[in-house]
Write a protein that binds this DNA or RNA. Structure first.
Lengths: 184, 184
DNA sequence: GTCTATAAAATGATAGAC
DNA sequence: GTCTATCATTTTATAGAC
């Protein structure tokens, strides 16, 4: 039962607990217990709990975009690709253990750590750029210009994610998708 | 220097710290120290830290809608009233110590407490109803129906609030306002 | 590199005097 | 109703053996 290495097991366990319970309520004790490793092993691989959090964010960032790109790869047509952004979110939100956006949750809990905030901003910034690229390729009724449409999609997705986590449904994301469809 | 009562001072201090720092990082010790009251006085007025959190949420809920209604009272014209929703947010976000939505922050930090989640849902639900009422009175280009327009405004405001807290600006809310203006 | 043992501080909460 | 003193836990982190 010790297939994975110690460092991976620490990060896997910490990631799960940070996401499901929150960062501050998750103690080092719970992490070492559930990862089944010694206390000093954790501090050998990560110099502090904060460093573990940063590792979690970095890894989530990469996994998130890898998943998005895998989802988008087979989707053809500029219009369909824009709408697929919503389908991607609905797919994520359909998972039984979905609890909201990893980054928004950590950002809401963060009290002043600039390194943490930096990671969150980088993640959201990159996604916003991604949306802009898709929108620039898609034809649409010119009620809004390209930049406005991209901003609108970004804000609708953020709003639907927050509301979805609160009301435990992906209904908001479906509504957001229908709204955007009226513009394409 | 003891103008206000003990109970008020506890709630004032706890509210400020919960909002500025977060709920879980704020300890009982810090609250009693900054409120300048005895430890047992806190537990006389509030049976637990959770109860103090619920009192904070209830009071924020009422203060929030009181402020909104004060802001909206002088605004005339159905179209202007819809747009004033954005001005209200921009006004709030312009405050130097604005750190995001009280309720979203607590919701993101909350791990399973149903009483807490209930308060957040009630707050957001009531605001959504408020938007629907305004939209139903406002004429608009019928690109979207009334309900869709109200949903869109709600989601844009939620998204702009989350993004605004992250990027420390009200730029997102101004963009959201311009987008909605295209429909009125 | 992994372990056990432990430190030092902070956590939420209670008892009992005044 | 407010106070001081104290409780049992839990927190993050380190020392030193193997």
């Amino acid at each position: 039962m010790k297939e994975t290495g110690v460092k991976d097991r620490i990060l896997d366990t910490a990631s799960r607990l940070f996401y499901e319970q929150g960062y501050h309520v998750t103690g080092i004790n719970q992490i070492i217990e559930e990862a089944d490793i010694a206390r000093a092993s954790l501090y050998h691989h990560f110099i502090s709990k904060t460093e573990l959090l940063l590792a979690y964010l970095d890894r989530s960032h990469e996994a998130w975009f890898r998943e998005l790109e895998d989802f988008m790869r087979p989707v053809e047509g500029a219009r369909e690709r824009v709408l697929a952004l919503f389908d991607h979110r609905i797919m994520r939100q359909s998972r039984p253990n979905w609890k909201g956006c990893n980054f928004n949750k950590i950002a809401a809990e963060n009290s002043g750590d600039e390194q943490v905030l930096e990671r969150v901003k980088r993640h959201k910034g990159r996604f916003r750029t991604y949306i802009r690229t898709l929108v620039s390729e898609a034809p649409h009724k010119r009620v809004l210009d390209d930049e406005q449409l991209a901003d609108m999609i970004f804000l609708l997705l953020e709003g639907a994610t927050v509301a979805g986590a609160m009301f435990r449904s992906y209904e908001e994301t479906e509504k957001a998708k229908k709204i955007v469809e009226s513009f394409l």
